[in-house]
């Protein structure tokens, strides 16, 4: 912000202030605190225990983060519009079990088709949430709390005590989360592609910007001519698709899928988004931040193990991390608000 003022005062020093503007805009990034925290965490852990950054160590870190990362991206799409989806854990569970069932019924089905079916299944479940929220005009928190139970119940009824294990699935499918490309596990690359694609969509397209407008002020967005219901419904569908993708990847990554797969995951996902600087009341935050938040949340557990902190402390530290993120975010937004007031006063 100060750089903008500088450039107005001294237009002759344009190149210098442009350089400043770039630096300042990096410093203003919402993702910066979480990026710094992540770097510090990784470096300190590495100094204490060098094995932490061995090839296998890095691979484990990335694998642990992958699924939460994808879910956090989908969740961000919704939180930005002032909605939320508490049912993602249940959607993931249903799709993961569905994936297991498909492979059990048709062992020779092409893997890509399974991804398609899983994501389509996720879209259908997301549509249930989206239609209930947009047509009945009921808050997403309530609807998705309801569908959390309904989807989980369906999963229970469908699976019963049955579980599918990794042995029931083709080796190539499980290989997705074992094989690496340039040191990255394949499923992590899938997650990275998802993050980049959604990030570009959110920052570069009309529809993506509309989501922020809806979250900042739904009434104003409507008055401005944005099709609020349509956009929110699409966000729910996209979130469903991503939860479906996460479900298929879950089946690839973990040994067993059953009735309780994904239980309680929803709060971790929302926590990841919050840690990544996504404001819980909509209007601001980015999917990159949410993905970094997911990476930070999963990495902290691994690094606490690597530096031999008592395992019982891990969850408490995660809680402190979430609270710290909220407080830092509040301080940052207070500072921005103050600067905005000053700059507006000068413009007048």
């Amino acid at each position: 912000m100060s750089s903008a003022l500088d450039s107005r005062k001294a237009p002759t020093r344009q190149p210098v202030s442009r350089g400043w503007a770039a630096t300042a805009s990096v410093l203003r990034l919402r993702e910066l605190p979480v990026l710094i925290a992540l770097s510090v965490l990784v470096i300190v852990t590495y100094l204490i225990n060098p094995l932490f950054l061995s090839a296998q160590g890095v691979k484990d870190l990335l694998l642990n983060a992958t699924i939460i990362m994808i879910l956090a991206v989908g969740q961000t799409l919704l939180i930005v519009t002032r909605n939320i989806d508490l049912s993602v854990g249940s959607i993931l569970g249903l799709v993961a079990f569905g994936t297991g069932s498909i492979f059990a019924a048709m062992p020779n089905i092409p893997i890509i088709a399974v991804f398609g079916i899983g994501m389509a299944f996720g879209v259908v479940l997301g549509a249930v949430n989206g239609i209930l929220v947009t047509v009945a005009k009921v808050p997403a928190l309530v609807i998705t709390l309801g569908t959390l139970y309904v989807f989980r119940g369906l999963n229970n009824a469908w699976a019963g005590g049955k579980q599918y294990f990794a042995g029931d699935r083709p080796d190539a499918f499980g290989g997705l989360s074992v094989d690496t490309f340039l040191g990255f596990p394949i499923i992590t690359l899938v997650a990275v592609v998802v993050v980049i694609a959604v990030a570009l969509y959110m920052s570069g397209t009309r529809a993506g910007r509309d989501l922020y407008a809806i979250g900042s002020d739904p009434e104003a967005a409507k008055a401005f001519g944005i099709k609020v219901s349509k956009r929110v419904l699409l966000a729910f569908l996209a979130n469903g698709a991503l939860a479906g993708l996460a479900g298929v990847l879950y089946a690839s990554r973990f040994n067993s899928v059953g009735a309780t797969t994904g239980t309680g995951m929803e709060l971790t996902v929302i926590a990841a988004a919050v840690v990544g600087g996504v404001a819980i009341f909509g209007g601001s935050g980015s999917v990159t931040g949410a993905a970094l938040g997911a990476l930070l949340l999963t990495t902290i557990t691994s690094s606490l193990t690597a530096v031999r902190v008592d395992k019982f402390w891990q969850q408490a530290i995660v809680g402190i991390l979430i609270l710290a993120a909220i407080i830092i975010d509040r301080l940052a937004s207070l500072r921005t608000a103050k600067k905005l007031r000053i700059s507006e006063a000068r413009n007048v």
């Binding site: 709060l267 819980i280 402390w313 969850q315 408490a316 995660v318 809680g319 402190i320 909220i326 407080i327």
Partner: peptide, 22 residues
């Protein structure tokens, strides 16, 4: 501090359960 309760209590949900484990 005026922080959003939804976010704060997700944090303390993890924190208090974590302290129970501790």
């Amino acid at each position: 501090l005026g922080l959003p309760s939804l976010a704060v209590t997700i944090g303390t949900l993890a924190l208090f359960r974590g302290l129970a484990l501790v």
